[in-house]
Simulated scan of single mutants.
Amino acid sequence: MLRSMYAGISGMKNFQTKLDVIGNNIANVNTVGFKKGRITFQDMMSQMSASAQGATANRGGINPIQVGLGSQIGSIDNIHTQGFRQTTNNPLDLALEGDGMFVVSDGEREYYTRAGNFYLDEQGFIVNSQGYYLYGETESGDNRLQIPRDAIGFNIQTDGVVSYTDGHEVTEIGNIMLASISNPAGLEKVGSNLFINGPNAGVLEEDDVPTYVLPGTNGTGTIVTGALEMSNVDLSEEFTEMITAQRSFQANTRMITTSDEILQELVNLKR
């Protein structure tokens, strides 16, 4: 069987995966805090037809003769560049200007997110759309931030300080804490705009336990109230990549068709 046919098949499979990644990016163009994906390829092992030979006293050296066997997926990366900021004027919509991630917890596990659309539950705790508590630091030691029901207003500052007023005085509740991550691309997506820690993420830790910091410290960004960080997907870039992937897919199918025609000619030699 011709090697070109198998090379074409590998190319088709890879560009189908590339289209899957592009399709997911486009589908999430308006998803809050979404980080786009990017796929890279690498060549597969090449078949050695003749090995290299060193130079001798009577003859120069000879380079190896190799035939490539197609391509394979090298990586699918999450690109954590800053998304554009959308002003909402909602006091519970928070955007991060810079690095770092919000931390939310379901009581059993902690998740990281750039989606800052938070809400108040019936008890006044700040939660995300799944009901996970926004991680903070309070004097009582509770990592949940709660605004009393009798509060007539509250404020979240750029350094993460959360305070409320009952009409007479301003009281600080605590601080929003952020995760400082040296390699955000190493986080694993788990859906619902959430990430979990991975072996290669580099979340700041102390004694193998994740340690969270105040906004604006340890390389993290500051909080912008009344705004959301939207997706970092660029539609013009995605459509360009889609056209390229489509043409490359077609080129690989043409290679399979051409290889099939050659095989047909070989079969017909006996006639």
Rank of each mutant, 00 (worst) to 15 (best):
K35G: 01
M255Y: 02
G33H: 05
H168N: 15
I156V: 05
E241D: 14
A95S: 10
N155R: 12
T165C: 13
N25H: 04
G174Y: 05
A251C: 02
N89H: 14
Q130N: 07
A185Y: 00
G98L: 03
N90E: 14
G186W: 07
N30K: 15
N232G: 01
S71M: 15
S140P: 07
F84T: 13
H168A: 12
R247L: 03
G160N: 08
M101N: 06
G202M: 05
Y132T: 03
S75H: 10
T31F: 07
R114I: 00
S236D: 14
S129I: 11
V267R: 03
V209F: 00
F118I: 04
I256F: 05
K35C: 02
A245S: 10
G124F: 07
E110Y: 03
E261C: 12
L269W: 10
L19I: 14
G70W: 02
G219E: 00
G116C: 02
L204E: 00
Q42P: 09
E206N: 13
H80G: 05
G174R: 01
Y6V: 13
V29Q: 12
I26P: 01
M48R: 13
R3I: 10
T88P: 04
L228Y: 02
T211M: 11
L228V: 00
K189P: 01
G8Q: 07
Q16G: 14
P199T: 03
M12P: 09
T88F: 15
R149F: 10
D93F: 01
D159N: 01
N63K: 12
T225K: 04
T220G: 12
Q146M: 04
G60V: 03
Y112H: 08
T81G: 13
D234M: 08
T40P: 06
L178D: 06
V161W: 08
T113M: 08
A52M: 13
L187Y: 00
G216C: 08
K36D: 07
I256A: 07
I39V: 11
S140R: 11
G100R: 06
G167P: 09
L228G: 05
G74S: 15
D106S: 14
G11F: 06
N200M: 14
N197E: 11
I62R: 14
G54V: 11
G131I: 02
I9W: 05
F41L: 15
L178P: 04
L94N: 01
P199E: 07
V162M: 09
G221P: 07
D106P: 07
Y132L: 05
G186Q: 12
T217H: 14
V67I: 12
E108H: 02
N232L: 08
